[in-house]
């Protein structure tokens, strides 16, 4: 069993006057192929007037993950960090991170994606934007 924190960001496209993004971080215990348990989730909204660059994405992820109490590496989709090589991305974070590899890590990212996407939909409905 391994502790990981899966992260996903939804809303990286322009709506009206800015980029309405929601980042979801999920702390999980996983085996190599299955999610065994989920201990905590954190959701944080972000608004940016311009398109987020890599450093902005790193800040968004770090800010969301700071609300998670459990330890473990941050698992991020390679595309979220503009397909930067892993060794470059690792240096940008203050804690351990890696790209998704195993089936369980992919499942965890998918899980985080569902949370961020549905949270963003609720947010946009509440703000009466979309």
């Amino acid at each position: 069993m391994f502790s990981i924190i899966a992260v996903d960001i939804s809303g990286r496209h322009k709506i009206k006057d800015g980029y309405y993004m929601v980042c979801a971080a999920v702390a999980l215990e996983v085996s190599a192929s299955h999610i065994e348990s989920i201990s905590q989730t954190a959701i944080k909204p972000f608004l940016s007037p311009g398109p987020p660059d890599v450093l902005a994405i790193v800040n968004i992820i770090e800010a969301t993950v700071s609300e998670i109490e459990s330890s473990g590496p941050i698992i991020v989709e390679k595309g979220d960090l503009y397909n930067r090589p892993e060794w470059i991305s690792k240096k940008m974070f203050s804690r351990d991170m890696k790209y998704q590899e195993s089936l369980s890590e992919r499942l965890a990212i998918e899980f985080a994606h569902h949370i961020s996407l549905s949270s963003r939909k609720l947010l946009m409905k509440e703000l009466d934007i979309e």
Partner: peptide, 20 residues
């Protein structure tokens, strides 16, 4: 090689158990 194998299995095996 394991990473590529997981990549091939992803979304296609639908919960089938894997023995390594």
């Amino acid at each position: 090689k394991l990473v590529v194998s997981h990549d091939i299995f992803w979304k296609r095996i639908e919960g089938v158990e894997i023995v390594t």
